[in-house]
């Protein structure tokens, strides 16, 4: 979700460049918009330490979730509650972290104008603690 939003923003910013390459096919246009987005993202990453940090954490959660899913598929889902607990902890943490990413990086205050970065971080920590509290009970 977050990445898509980012892309939309980038594409929206793209039109000034478009007229010079009007003859190009749709496919080329599409690949170019992707590479432009990627470059913009790379630039954002190099400029913003928090973005780097958040995205690295998200990548870690995805990797861990996929690993558990593969293990479950291969070995069987016997302690199913444990699998659900472990898997949901990565998914839930992913969702919460993406929320943090949206709120923290909403610099212009367009969407979350009323929420300060401190408030966002506080919400995030509280929600994460609750998530893990519940999940550890669920894992039993």
């Amino acid at each position: 979700m977050a990445k898509k939003d980012k892309k939309v923003a980038v594409v929206a910013a793209a039109p000034p460049l478009a007229p010079t390459k009007a003859t190009k096919s749709l496919l080329a246009e599409f690949s170019q918009s992707i590479s432009t987005s990627y470059k913009m993202y790379q630039k954002d990453l190099s400029e913003n330490q928090k973005l780097r940090l958040i995205d690295a954490f998200l990548a870690f959660l995805v990797a861990l979730g996929v690993l558990q899913f593969i293990f479950c598929v291969l070995v069987g889902n016997f302690p199913f509650n444990a699998f659900l607990g472990g898997f949901c902890s990565t998914v839930g943490q992913f969702v919460l972290t993406v929320s943090l990413r949206l709120q923290t990086l909403d610099v212009k205050g367009e969407i979350f104008g009323s929420i300060t970065p401190e408030r966002a971080l506080g919400d995030y920590i509280l929600a994460s603690l609750m998530l893990h509290f519940v999940l550890f009970h669920f894992i039993n």
């Binding site: 959660l61 861990l64 690993l67 558990q68 293990f71 070995v75 069987g76 016997f78 302690p79 444990a82 699998f83 607990g85 472990g86 898997f87 902890s89 990565t90 943490q93 893990h132 999940l135 550890f136 894992i139």
Partner: peptide, 12 residues
């Protein structure tokens, strides 16, 4: 079996 999931939850 659940050690995998426990480890992952702790790691998170």
């Amino acid at each position: 079996n659940s050690w995998v999931y426990l480890t992952s939850a702790v790691a998170v």
